[in-house]
Design a protein around this nucleic acid. Structure first.
Lengths: 200, 200
DNA sequence: GCCGCCATCTTGTCAATGTCAAGATAGGGT
DNA sequence: ACCCTATCTTGACATTGACAAGATGGCGGC
């Protein structure tokens, strides 16, 4: 799902190489534990080369966030036919694409008003709204239901990534996530009379 | 709940002043948007003065996290008699003490094995475990129930702080949080036969 | 009352970083 | 063949985190 850019002049495709180096660096030491010059060294170019493509560090992180939101929306849409699996997809994306996720939900790192960021973010938000409607006890609870389901999966992902969950040592996050979603959202549907169809 | 330290020699209480300056700087521009030298300038001391008290930047953030976890555990314990209010207290702490919260759950920023950090974190985790036991459908679901309730309130807090929730523009977060907790955890208790007593 | 101790804080320094400006390079259109 | 322009390099500067060595001043021992 990464955007294809034409081969560039000297390097081949420096823009992509820098973004990939950034993703790797973020995976190794967090979204702030690296320098633009280090990325340039990894890509084998001069220290100021990245600035040409991204302007500054915030510009690079904006590109990462935009790419991340696009991939994220794709992942959610791919599960759209199964309400529960949208939640699982949310969590799986965060864990499988940790560097993207860690940037996306840290708005002070990048320019949240970037058009391509906005597009992806709104696409993902739309998926959450439509998929959780099936769980809501009634139209007047739609917003609250969306917020609750979103909080649940986002919280699980954040806690897992931060290592706060004791379970993160051993288990398989996806199986765990699926159990949790079944426990909570299942209770919401049966317990409060959600108007959704049984998934699957 | 801030730890009391004896007045120091030249400044009065530089350690506290630096921590307070850090909290303010984090509130303004995130946990990485400032420098030790800036804090020193704010406190009116030389650029290397903070290093004496905290060693390095990570040491300062470790002190912030430790203080935060202690306050956090206190806040949860203060609500311990009411299961639902523990969740509300979790969210309220994150929003009222945003700088602490943003550091606490970002383990790459500080030394998570610091003894005083560990103490506070374990105290808070214990509160979550005991308070959510009332919601669990049965002992074999205790861990899952804790994880679900924790994810819910942590996710809400994270999303609110990141500005991702559309509701964060207008409403009162505490009222919203209370409604969400009632919707979800209430459904869990009634829907799945939780063995807890009705709160209040 | 005085003195030495030592925690506290200052000054000086160094490599590394982000960012800007100016120059070099090379592929593609004409 | 030639120039244009995107791409990348080189050079520079202020700022930063960290370290080392020196200055300051309150407190305990006498």
């Amino acid at each position: 799902m990464r955007q294809i850019s034409q081969p560039s002049y000297h390097h081949g495709n420096l823009r992509r190489a820098i973004v990939d180096a950034a993703l790797q660096a973020i995976a190794e030491s967090g979204p702030a534990g690296w320098s633009l010059r280090e990325l340039a060294r990894r890509a084998g170019v001069s220290h100021a080369a990245p600035a040409h493509h991204f302007g500054d560090k915030q510009g690079l992180l904006t590109a990462v966030a935009a790419e991340g939101f696009a991939m994220f929306a794709d992942a959610l849409e791919a599960a759209a036919d199964d309400v529960w699996e949208v939640g699982v997809a949310y969590i799986r994306f965060g864990i499988d694409h940790r560097p993207y996720f860690e940037v996306m939900f840290r708005p002070e790192l990048y320019r949240t008003d970037d058009p391509s960021v906005r597009t992806g973010r709104e696409r993902a938000a739309g998926m959450l709204v439509t998929s959780t409607r099936w769980l809501s006890p009634g139209p007047e609870h739609d917003r609250m239901t969306t917020m609750a389901a979103w909080s649940l999966v986002h919280g699980f992902t954040s806690l897992w990534l931060s290592g706060a969950l004791p379970e993160s040592a051993d288990g398989d996050p996806e199986a765990l996530a699926r159990s949790m979603i079944r426990l909570v959202l299942g209770a919401m549907r049966t317990g409060s009379g959600g108007r959704g169809l049984a998934p699957g």
